[in-house]
């Protein structure tokens, strides 16, 4: 399985030194005579991040609702933490809402392999264990 990190908390920040060099390059052309270096203080930083669940490839869908894991399960309003992806001990993944509805209908097995369903690690726990083996 392709390993995939959830990246919402890892926005890329350009290191201090490198940033100053870039700024110096940009501004030195506009004020060639004065030789004074322009300093820019960054007051605000608007990070943009992309995230995916750590569950199979990006175009993989939940076997219950057939929506992508990044999408919204029926009954949930927003994707992401509102609509988490869970793994069974058997290794199969579904939206939490989807597998919960299945288990609430007097069934106890994984929709894919029909083994007794037991909740395994969540995607978040997986991420941690993959990063710190």
């Amino acid at each position: 399985m392709e390993s995939r990190k959830r990246q919402s908390d890892t926005a890329v920040i350009v290191p201090q030194q490198q940033r100053q060099q870039q700024q110096a390059m940009q501004f030195s052309n506009t004020t060639p005579s004065t030789r004074s270096r322009l300093r820019v203080r960054i007051k605000r930083f608007h990070g943009v991040a992309k995230w995916t669940w750590n569950a199979g490839s990006e175009d993989e869908v939940c076997g219950i609702c057939q929506s992508p894991f990044e999408g919204v399960a029926p009954g949930a309003k927003y994707p992401g933490d509102e609509c988490p992806v869970v793994f069974g001990k058997c290794g199969h993944a579904f939206h939490l809402q989807c597998v919960a509805t299945w288990l609430n209908s007097q069934r106890t097995t994984c929709p894919y392999c029909r083994q007794e369903w037991e909740f395994g690690q969540s995607s978040d726990q997986r991420r941690v264990s993959e990063q710190n083996p």
Partner: peptide, 11 residues
Amino acid sequence: MAASGRLNKEL
């Protein structure tokens, strides 16, 4: 809507 999403796709 969301529940019929799967049905639509299936059909």
